[in-house]
């Protein structure tokens, strides 16, 4: 349902704007890296967009690992109260 408030996050199009803005920002950050002098300690850092790819992949991996962990350790809320 569109909200009366044009800034509201209940309005899906506003959320979309934010998310697409984020995608564009990410897209810009990779080439920007090469405009500046690099100070890398490790060879792996020189890989184009290393930090971005690393952040993305690791984030997804953490969330998926969390989902797996849930199968092993999640219990009913009153588990310790019985």
């Amino acid at each position: 349902m569109p909200s009366k408030n044009r800034q509201s996050l209940d309005d899906r199009s506003n959320v979309n704007k934010l998310v697409y803005g984020l995608y564009i920002l990410c897209g810009l950050l990779v080439p920007i890296q090469f405009l500046f002098e690099q100070h890398s300690h490790f060879a792996v850092e020189k890989f184009p967009g290393f930090y971005g790819i690393f952040g993305f992949v690791v984030f997804v991996a953490i969330v998926l690992a969390g989902k797996l962990l849930r199968r092993a350790i999640m219990r009913e809320e009153d588990y310790y109260d019985r």
Binding site: L22, C26, Q33, G49, Y51, G52, G55, V58
Partner: peptide, 20 residues
């Protein structure tokens, strides 16, 4: 340093993109 700022922003914003 510009390198540090850009790489850190890359790490954090790509992670946010993964979340989205």
């Amino acid at each position: 340093t510009s390198h540090h700022v850009v790489t850190q922003l890359q790490l954090l914003l790509f992670a946010t993109m993964a979340f989205a």
